[in-house]
Design a protein around this nucleic acid. Structure first.
Length: 535
RNA sequence: GCUCCUGUGGUGUAGUCCGGCUAAGCAUACUGCCCUCUCAAGGCAGUGAUCCCGGGUUCAAAUCCCGGCGGGAGCACCA
């Protein structure tokens, strides 16, 4: 039926035929059925592998070479995993259709924006590998926005309201227009002009003439522009009438030639306004689509909760490895390619979900594994003395599969092994000191003593890693844990473990990913500190 | 409260628009085996979903219709 859809309409005629054949086949034994299949219809037995769709679903109304997307962050904080999702989706779609991506700083609220965040966002995108074709600021288009606002006033589609907030809010709830909406054009123009000098902030706003009776509350004459006297990070005191989000986005998307605009789901109700605005301004309408926001369990993204943590010193800063900020993820050892794969695996959906961090880790582990130097590390060191040692130097390869060179370790027969491993040892037991030799435990006390039996590989005895006592390197390993349990800050969200590692650690670049054998992947954060990435 | 969105195995998704190739694919997690001088990566196999529930339409429904229920969001001179 799937192969010949044209038969569907004739299904009633076919059904008797089918039943007849089924009956006939059922009379045969299973063996005979199989044989018939093999002989006559062997092509049916070949199971063709299902091909998985990689990347995002196709875009409605998108033409090759003719797609422009945009990533419009407000420069009011450090970029986080949510920004990563938005920007990667924007970029992927632009790429998929051979189009362009515009980075547009949505900087229309001088109360919140700061210059350093423009830079921080660029740094974040850079790290993620998101490449944009053009950068701009909404605030550079203020003249366009003013002229569009004036048009709306002239055409009677907007008016200046001088009511106080409470009145406006009450009227909205009660679906009542206020007296300002009745004002004539001259009144509105006079008031509009006064917004640039006479009125104080809060005394007048421009409102869209929407529909006070709409079920969608955002349509009840929403604010379009308001007065803000704070200095703008770029334009200082050049402007004081600022558009709000809805007006700015609609105008900018349209003038920037955006064909497809994406935003998170919480803006969904504003889409009606977006189109209404564009309609009244006689502007081209991009396609607006929404996706669910990305946040991890126990790892909130909002400035409202993160900022206090930083200020109270509960985390070390916005680059704390426990945080879902891009800087935090980077320090933790998450690589951008893994973030991209992970985000694409989530698809373009509107369902509210909180994927576990584990999934990202799994992508990351696969990315990072082929290039991570394998190193030994020991926690709670316990001394282990080999009484009949004869080796002075061992050469160990840096990676089991990838050609990453070898390193030499000078030994003298005295080692440190992990306390956890030491606890399991029994006298007479045979163990292998990885890469060195097999030993039998002869004495257990403050120190452990053992003797070499042979040097060949043995697969059936415990294998443990060690650090030579000659020149151990002290490191602190930071282990980030979940930040919040429900809404409760996890006071034990950062475990710090002291450890001993190899001399070779010092030769690695800061930022490189290491796999500590039998422990997990860590990123070298400094000569004395490593951050646990995942197992 | 009102309005909108959403609901596929433990988790994240594919399939839903255009009903039949699939009693549901992939990834992750978990289990076992193989490989391996790592508890990693890799290979193989397995556990696990009556596709939120109840009706309806149809020869046929995860897919269409109606009604419930669960979850989320919006109701700012913030984006």
């Amino acid at each position: 039926m799937g192969i010949k859809p044209e038969l569907r309409s004739k299904i009633k005629d076919i059904i008797p035929l089918i039943s007849e054949i089924v009956e006939e086949v059922n009379k045969l034994s299973i063996e005979l059925q199989k044989e018939e299949l093999r002989n006559k219809y062997s092509e049916l037995l070949v199971t063709k592998p299902k091909q998985e769709r990689t990347g995002l679903p196709p875009l409605e109304g998108a033409e090759q070479g003719n797609v422009i997307t945009r990533f419009p962050p407000e420069p009011n904080g450090y970029p986080h995993i949510g920004h990563a999702k938005a920007s990667i989706i924007d970029e992927e779609y632009a790429k998929m259709y051979g189009g362009k991506l515009i980075l547009r700083f949505d900087d229309t609220n001088p109360e919140k924006e700061r210059l350093e965040y423009y830079a921080a966002i660029k740094v974040g995108l850079d790290w993620l590998g998101v490449k944009y074709d053009h950068v701009k600021n909404t605030s550079d288009d203020m003249e366009i926005i003013y002229s569009k606002a004036r048009e709306l006033i002239d055409s009677g589609n907007a008016y200046v309201c001088t009511c106080d907030k409470e009145t406006i809010s009450n009227n909205r709830r009660e679906m009542k227009p206020c007296k300002c909406s009745l004002g004539n054009k001259d009144q509105n123009i006079t008031r509009w002009n006064k917004m640039f000098d006479k009125f104080k902030p809060g005394e007048a706003i421009v409102r869209f003439r929407g529909n006070m009776n709409s079920d969608n509350t955002v349509m009840r004459d929403p604010t379009l522009l308001r007065i803000i006297d704070e200095l703008h990070p770029i334009h200082k005191d050049r402007y004081r009438v600022w558009p709000n989000y809805d007006l700015a986005v609609a105008i900018e998307d349209s003038v920037d030639g955006i064909t497809h605009a994406f935003r998170t789901k919480e803006y969904e109700l504003r889409t009606e306004l977006y189109y209404a605005l564009l309609d009244k301004m006689n502007m081209r309408k991009p396609k607006m689509l929404e996706f669910s926001r990305l946040e991890f369990q126990g790892m909130p993204v909002s400035k409202r909760v993160l900022k206090p943590l930083v200020e109270e010193g509960k985390v070390s800063g916005f680059d704390d490895p426990r945080l879902p900020t891009l800087e935090g993820l980077r320090r933790r050892g998450i690589v951008p390619e893994a973030i991209r794969k992970f985000i694409l695996s989530l698809g373009f959906t509107k369902s509210d979900t909180m994927p576990p961090f584990e999934t990202l880790e799994s992508y990351n582990r696969k990315m990072v594994d082929p290039t991570s130097v394998r190193l030994f590390i020991v926690f709670d060191p316990v001394k282990l003395r080999v009484i009949n040692n004869s080796l002075t130097e061992i050469e160990i390869s840096n990676h089991p599969q990838t050609e990453m060179g070898k390193r030499k370790i000078v030994i003298d027969g005295t080692f440190y092994i992990s306390g956890d491993d030491a606890k399991t040892l029994k006298i007479g037991e045979e163990i292998r000191l990885l890469e060195a030799y097999n030993v039998r435990i002869t004495k257990i006390g403050q120190e452990i003593e053992c003797e070499v039996i042979d040097t060949g590989h043995k697969s059936n005895i415990p294998k443990i890693q060690w650090i030579t006592q000659k020149n151990p390197v002290n490191v602190e390993v930071l282990i980030p844990k979940i930040l919040f349990n429900d809404d409760q800050f996890n006071e034990d969200s950062l475990e710090v473990k002291r450890a001993l590692t190899e001399q070779y650690y010092l030769e690695l670049n800061v930022g490189s990913e290491i796999q500590f054998v039998r422990f997990g992947y860590c990123r070298k954060d400094s000569a004395s500190q490593a951050i646990y990435t995942h197992k």
